[in-house]
């Protein structure tokens, strides 16, 4: 699976300005709505489901990265918003460190395999120090997209 297959280009937020985990999730879900990938009717529901999932354990998985996610029946394929927070965000991460890179995933309930493949794809790239560094330095949607496409080019399909 390639990043550019499920990341929504118009839902990339290169300079996320928020002060809380919930605000970050709201803005990222809002970006998916603005991009036309989820309906306004489901926006609140999806945000709530993602925050409830966080209660099970933070998706801040270390290395300055968080992958908040949920399933939702209103989407028919895996979709993902990306946000970069230069100042760092308290995400109650497993390692206690702030989060700078966020990948927010929404997947159809009947396709758990796609969710696993999306998580694998994201975390495989995030293990690469250069990828994380360049991503954090990106200031525009175009730059982020180029970086994702470049990473895809070197990845096994």
């Amino acid at each position: 699976m390639k990043l550019t297959e499920f990341v929504v280009r118009d839902a990339v937020i290169p300079e996320l300005q928020v002060s809380s985990k919930e605000d970050a999730v709201k803005q990222m879900v809002g970006a998916l709505r603005d991009a036309g990938r989820i309906s306004a009717d489901h926006e609140g529901d999806i945000t709530l489901a993602i925050m409830k999932r966080e209660e099970l354990g933070s998706t801040g998985i270390g290395r300055g990265v968080a992958v908040p996610h949920t399933k939702h029946a209103s989407v028919d394929e895996l979709i993902c918003a990306v946000a970069l927070c230069e100042a760092g965000l308290d995400f109650a991460s497993l390692d206690g460190e702030p989060v700078y890179i966020l990948f927010l995933l929404v997947s159809p309930p009947d396709r758990p395999g796609d969710h696993l493949r999306g998580l694998e794809t994201i975390t495989r790239h995030l293990k690469d120090d250069d990828f994380c560094r360049f991503l954090r330095q990106s200031k525009t949607q175009e730059h982020v997209w180029e970086l994702l496409a470049e990473a895809d080019g070197g990845a096994p399909t």
């Binding site: 998985i61 270390g62 290395r63 497993l94 758990p112 395999g113 696993l116 493949r117 998580l119 694998e120 975390t123 495989r124 995030l126 293990k127």
Partner: peptide, 11 residues
């Protein structure tokens, strides 16, 4: 956790 997610182990 990052490593374990690389397994993409389905049911």
């Amino acid at each position: 956790v990052l490593d374990l997610l690389q397994l993409k182990a389905e049911c």
